[in-house]
Each structure stands twice: as structure tokens, then as C-alpha cells.
């Protein structure tokens, strides 16, 4: 099982490669990818350097082109696909069906992965993208139970990649427009969710408050840790109660079920966080590498070490973790 790690900068890429990532994924510094954040990502020259650095050390580089190009900007996305082929990246991670078709027709030797933003949650959808558009790997949305992942792996015509660690999307990726409803920008359209430019913090007599384009996302008591105001992790009123109506701030962590994933034939496990620091990438990559190696060596006796979990919790949202949908025992 391969370890796929994020890089939002050259130092982060080096951190991933140096700490044992089999592959590193990154994006151009524009709206063609789903981490279009200020100060992040790569230009052509930096990707060249990234490719050299990774390839010399036996790691691969995957380029995320995983937003949905609208008609007026179509050429910008197809140019990005051309550049990916020209640079010789090891695969392009794409979500848009039209763009996948362009890539498959124009650059038949470019390996294509279906992005998590492509919302492929079942074998028919994966087969469609494989038969029609030639994808060779699929990244599963974080909505499937472990049993469902197993079923997909058993019936998928292509390699299956799952998320292993990082911030947790609880909606079907690629099918969430909550962010654009509040701010005008979403992952699909602009490569951002709850964008930083729409965030406002306020100190009030009731405590600290976070707003997104004016909409109150959360209110914190004195001394309570305040997290980034991602829309789906705010506290809202539903019925009588004010609750985390969608999800608590927490991170996905699959270390507990690593042997299951390995045994069922999952091809790759992905770490979220191109927006995070090189230190985060180094830390998470190191722990995941150790866990994967330990599990591969002796899956029967594998057990996540306490210091791995502690190290990961330290860089987790809300300093806590969950298996997300994977722990569901029902449909």
C-alpha cells in the first residue's frame, strides 16, 4: 500500500519525500486545483524542481487539477493538462469529466487518477470513468463504511486510494456547494472551501466569534480553543439545541484499521493537507511511513503505537481523531 502525501510548497515536498512518501501530490498556483489558497502551490519551474527532487529519491509526483472548469476558463484548464504532460508528472488527478476526456484524448500516455472531487462512491461510477475516460486510479470520497470500501475494492476495475489522515470532509466531495452559498466560492468552482478572505474574527462580551461573509459560524467561551471557521464545523441551532449540527472539529485517522485496508487490497492511502506547513507534512509522513512499514511486516500483530497517535493528534483539527464514515457498521 502506497503512501501519498501533500505538498503546498517545495519545502513541504522535500519533507514528504525525505520522510518516506511514495508519492507527493501538488497543484499549480491558481484555481485549477482544490487548494487554491494564498501563498500556496507551485509554478512550472518549481514543479520541475519538485519532479527532479522526488524522482532522484524514488518518489513520484502527482498533479492535482481537480476543480471544475467553467466554459470561459476552459483553456486555462486544458493548458494545465498540457503542462502536466509536458512536465512529465507521474499522474494527473482530475475531477471534471470533460477535462478527463480532453486529457485522455490529447495525452494518451498521461496516467489519470479520478480525484476525490469526482464523487465516485460505487463500482458503476468507477467503471464509467474507467471505460469512458481511461482513469487508472480512483480516490474515494470519505463517506463510505469499511465494508463498502471493501466492496468497492473487490469490484473496481482500477486501483483504489483512500484518505488516511487529515481534515475531514463529511459531505460527498464534489457534491457540496455550502461554501459558495455563503461566500460565492466553493471547492468545485474556485478550489476553496470557507475561504480565508471571507473570515472575520470578533471579540465580544459573549466571547470570541467567527464569521464567514458575515454569517456567524461559532462563538467561543473564554479559554475555549477556537478553530478555523469551516462552515460544516460550526455550532448552529437545529430544533431546540445549539450543536455541531454537521460535524465536530476533528481529523480522520485510519491507523486503527490499517491491516484491514491493506488486506482488502487498497492501493494507496492519502494524507490531506496541502495547506499545512512543511513541519506538519514531515510529522505526518514520518508516522504514516512507520505505521505502514510495521503493518506490512507483521499485520497480525500490528498495533498503532501510542506515540504515533499522540504525534498525529497534536497536528489534528480539535486535537482529536475519528474513523469518520469508515466505522459505520450499517449502510
Amino acid at each position: 500500500m502506497e503512501l501519498v502525501c501533500p505538498a503546498g510548497s517545495l519545502p513541504a515536498l522535500k519533507a514528504a519525500v525525505d520522510n518516506g512518501a511514495d508519492a507527493v501530490y501538488l497543484g499549480f498556483r491558481d484555481a485549477t486545483n482544490a487548494r487554491n489558497f494564498p501563498g500556496l502551490n507551485f509554478d512550472m519551474d518549481e514543479i520541475s524542481q519538485a519532479l527532479d527532487y522526488a524522482h532522484q529519491r524514488g518518489s513520484r509526483v502527482l498533479l492535482a487539477l481537480n476543480t471544475y472548469p467553467q466554459q470561459a476558463q476552459w483553456q486555462q484548464w486544458t493548458r494545465a493538462v498540457d503542462q502536466a504532460a509536458e512536465l512529465g508528472v507521474d499522474a494527473a488527478i482530475i475531477a471534471d469529466p470533460g477535462l478527463l476526456r480532453y486529457a485522455a484524448k490529447t495525452h494518451p500516455s498521461l496516467r489519470l487518477h479520478l480525484s476525490v472531487q469526482g464523487s465516485a462512491t460505487n463500482r458503476h461510477t468507477i467503471a464509467f470513468y474507467h471505460e469512458e475516460l481511461g482513469i487508472q486510479q480512483v480516490v474515494l470520497p470519505r463517506v463510505l463504511s469499511l465494508a463498502q470500501v471493501r466492496q468497492v475494492v473487490e469490484t473496481s476495475p482500477v486501483a483504489v486510494e483512500v484518505f488516511g489522515f487529515g481534515s475531514l470532509c463529511i459531505m460527498v466531495e464534489g457534491r457540496c456547494a455550502l461554501s459558495s452559498y455563503i461566500t460565492g466560492e466553493s471547492p468545485n468552482t474556485c478550489g476553496v472551501c470557507s475561504p480565508a478572505k471571507a473570515v472575520r474574527w470578533e471579540e465580544t462580551p459573549q466571547g470570541r466569534q467567527s464569521r464567514l461573509n458575515g454569517v456567524l459560524i461559532d462563538r467561543y467561551k473564554n479559554g475555549e480553543a477556537a478553530g478555523y471557521p469551516t462552515l460544516c464545523k460550526g455550532r448552529f441551532r437545529v430544533g431546540e439545541n445549539i450543536i455541531y449540527a454537521m460535524e465536530e472539529p476533528t481529523s480522520l485517522n485510519i491507523l486503527d484499521i490499517l491491516p484491514d485496508l491493506m488486506q482488502m487490497g487498497v492501493a494507496a492511502v492519502k494524507v490531506e493537507g496541502r495547506q499545512r506547513s512543511p513541519a506538519y507534512v514531515a510529522q505526518v509522513t514520518r508516522v504514516m511511513r512507520a505505521a505502514l512499514d510495521s503493518c506490512a511486516q507483521d499485520p497480525e500483530h500490528y498495533k498503532p503505537a501510542a506515540d504515533w497517535l499522540a504525534a498525529l493528534d497534536k497536528v489534528s483539527e480539535g486535537q482529536t481523531h475519528t474513523l469518520g464514515a469508515l466505522h459505520r457498521t450499517w449502510q
Binding site: M171, V172, C176
Partner: peptide, 21 residues
């Protein structure tokens, strides 16, 4: 009302403190 997002979890069940199943 525009359908904006879909999840594996049920937010109506969650609001009632019930598991989805």
C-alpha cells in the same frame, strides 16, 4: 430551496441524537 450538499451521515438523525441506522 436548493439542494446544496449530500453526506453519508444523516443530519436529521443527528439533530435528534439518533444514530443513522
Amino acid at each position: 430551496h436548493m439542494p446544496l450538499s449530500f453526506s453519508a451521515r444523516c443530519f436529521t438523525a443527528r439533530a435528534h441524537n439518533l444514530p443513522k441506522d
